[in-house]
């Protein structure tokens, strides 16, 4: 990256990144252990094909977790991520085989995501309405729009495009890496880095010249983009659109972000943590499936692990009035 060229910046940029890693080191170890367990159970994972397949099952969750974590860093939250995923999926499934073609469809999906996010952001930030309620109402509007576009599962994604994204290729893994790198670039811009300040101490940041409102609205817009991206990928995976396919992603995105150490009050956590959290959740589901856990046990274990992961640091590091 161009930002890291000079010797002085090498002394600052990378060390600052390393120091920010400390909070998630424990999580990385846990994730590594789970991945190792998975690889041990399923040696096929360690081939190009195995990694590609796994990355495909992980990718949408990783995107929505980033989408959610981004908002949580600014002190917000979204309950409309699932609906936005669905909308992305149905737009993709109805436009790509039409006159717009794949490129046109891609553009429509991305514009829709950015617009939805930006509008939500403006309502939350400018009109000072609580994010949780606004996104709750938005989930109905966005979900309704998805139903309008495609009342029942259907539509189609061109086969070649499906194969390219979700076939026997490492496209998902590559896209995930690209997304993560783009996030790094965004964080290296003044607006991107302001996210943390806008989330943790909005008043102080505003006084210090940070464009708090713009940073938060931008976060909502990017969050919308990531969510429709996940929808697009899910549509490519199934080869068609489904207006309610995203529903489960709302709660899973919160779970992954929290597993990844992102706090609810803003300014706490990192994107790499959220991605690791989504990886942990994906691997957990895969491992339990592999071990032949009945779905019941999977749900139960998932619930327990999430609570445990959140409660443990609280129990060990407790202080403050009772």
């Amino acid at each position: 990256m161009s930002v890291t060229s000079g010797p002085a910046s090498r002394r600052l940029y990378w060390p600052a990144q390393m120091q920010r890693n400390r909070g998630v080191r424990g999580l990385f170890v846990v994730v590594a252990l789970f991945v190792a367990l998975y690889a041990y159970l399923f040696p096929g994972l360690l081939t190009v094909g195995g990694v590609s397949k796994f990355a495909q099952s992980w990718f949408p969750l990783a995107l929505v977790s980033m989408s959610q974590a981004l908002l949580m860093l600014t002190g917000g939250i979204s309950l409309s991520i699932g609906a936005t995923v669905s909308l992305g999926a149905v737009i993709a499934a109805t436009t790509m085989t039409g006159p717009l073609g794949v490129v046109g469809g891609l553009a429509v999906v991305m514009i829709a995501g950015l617009a939805i996010g930006a509008i939500t952001g403006v309502i939350v930030v400018r009109l000072r309405l609580p994010a949780i309620v606004v996104t709750l109402a938005a989930s109905f509007i966005i979900g309704g729009a998805a139903l309008l576009i495609l009342p029942r599962p259907g539509g189609a994604i061109p086969t070649w495009f499906s194969d390219l994204l979700a076939g026997n290729t490492p496209a998902a893994l590559i896209l995930l890496i690209v997304t993560a790198l783009l996030w790094k670039v965004y964080l290296a811009t003044p607006l991107g880095l302001s996210l943390y300040a806008a989330g943790e101490n909005p008043v102080g940041a505003y006084r210090g010249g940070v464009p708090v409102d713009i940073a938060r609205i931008a976060a909502y817009a990017i969050s919308g983009l990531l969510a429709v991206g996940a929808g697009l990928f899910v549509a490519a995976q199934t080869g068609s659109g489904d207006p309610v396919i995203g529903t489960a992603f709302t709660l899973n995105s919160i779970a992954a972000a929290v597993l990844g150490g992102v706090g609810f009050l803003g300014g706490r956590g990192t994107m790499r943590g959220a991605i690791a959290g989504s990886l942990l959740l994906s691997v957990m589901i895969n491992v339990m499936f592999f071990l032949g856990f009945p779905p019941v046990a999977q749900y139960v274990a998932q619930g327990l692990i999430i609570i445990g992961a959140v409660a443990l640091p609280e129990i060990t590091g407790r202080r403050g009035p009772r």
Partner: peptide
């Protein structure tokens, strides 16, 4: 339609 209903509701 269900879609419009949901949009109106939200």
């Amino acid at each position: 339609s269900p879609g419009w209903r949901s949009i109106l509701f939200g």
